[in-house]
């Protein structure tokens, strides 16, 4: 696997807006972003209403994912190019999610919506018309998804990477600083977790840092033991998808899982060990 297999540049995307078999998909938390302007031909996915079950806390079923992609006009053999706001957090989450359900050819637009906008590239409000398809998903690939019990068992045995900001890691804040401070019952982090904020993997414009910079960041500076499996987590699992992408897709680390329950689940569990630095 190389960078070109999983990432495309804004120039490449601009040259392939109308190429058959290539579908751009914008994934945002705030879907009004898409409605005020998106890349030509891009379809919209809402990370929450489309990708999360609305009753229990889990992803939509395989059948619902198939119905969703069929309705959006995405085929099994399409190359899906994901992009979005928040430095591609939700696009990276969708990338991991597409991999979870076995889509073979999916890539991220490097830098996402931010790079596209900062470049001064065009956005449109025209909604593309795509014919419905008959999409078939695979069973979830649990080799890339970690659950709470496995995460607790990983303490002191596997690499745990907490990708939240230093203040969330230390327990000073419960949520990122642009949000009201609420959510989990307890602040802090999972014992033995390394703190490598997701943002260190990205440049200011939202593009990923080079492979050499990423390897230096995780292995040399943070002390990631590449002989052991790794579980990444954040607060709700999207920033850790970004780090999962950097470790698993860009650096090619073999056994890397995203714990999507993340701190909103772990920080509310009764009796689990928590470290707090403040």
């Amino acid at each position: 696997m190389s960078r070109a297999d999983v990432l495309v540049t804004a120039d490449w995307a601009a040259d392939n807006l109308n190429t058959p078999g290539i579908v751009l998909v914008e994934v945002d938390e705030d879907t009004s972003a898409y409605d005020t302007g998106h890349i030509e031909g891009a379809v919209k996915l809402d990370w929450k209403s489309d990708l999360q079950d609305q009753v229990i806390r889990d992803f939509v079923s395989k059948e619902k994912f198939e119905a969703l992609l069929s309705a959006k006009g995405i085929s099994n053999d399409d190359t899906v190019i994901l992009y979005g706001g928040n430095n591609n957090w939700f696009a990276a989450y969708a990338y991991w999610y597409f991999k979870l359900y076995g889509h073979s050819d999916v890539k991220l637009l490097d830098g996402g919506r931010k790079k596209w906008e900062l470049d001064g590239r065009e956005l449109t409000t025209d909604t593309p018309a795509r014919d419905k398809t008959s999409y078939t998903a695979k069973e979830q690939d649990k080799t890339i998804r970690a659950f709470r019990d496995e995460t607790i068992e990983a303490i002191g045995k596997k690499n745990l990477i907490d990708v939240r900001s230093p203040d969330e890691f230390s327990g000073k804040l419960l949520a990122p600083a642009h949000l009201p401070q609420e959510q989990s019952q307890r602040a802090g982090h999972i014992p033995t977790a390394l703190n490598v904020p997701w943002s260190k993997a990205a440049n200011d414009d939202g593009t990923f840092r080079s492979d050499d910079e990423l390897r230096k960041l995780y292995v040399e500076e943070a002390g990631l033991d590449t002989s052991k499996p790794t579980i990444a987590y954040c607060r709700i699992g999207e920033r850790s998808s970004h780090t999962w992408f950097a470790l698993h897709e860009l650096l090619g680390e073999k056994d890397v899982k995203n714990y999507d329950g993340s701190w909103t689940e772990y920080g509310s569990l009764v009796g689990v060990p928590v470290e707090k630095d403040v």
Partner: peptide, 25 residues
């Protein structure tokens, strides 16, 4: 929003009226 060590903490997009807000420490 960068902390006192220059570490990235959060990012927002300004509204149509140019407004931004952070809940910092």
């Amino acid at each position: 929003l960068l902390d006192s060590s220059g570490e990235f903490t959060a990012e927002v997009v300004t509204s149509a009226t140019g407004a931004f807000r952070f809940f910092a420490a």
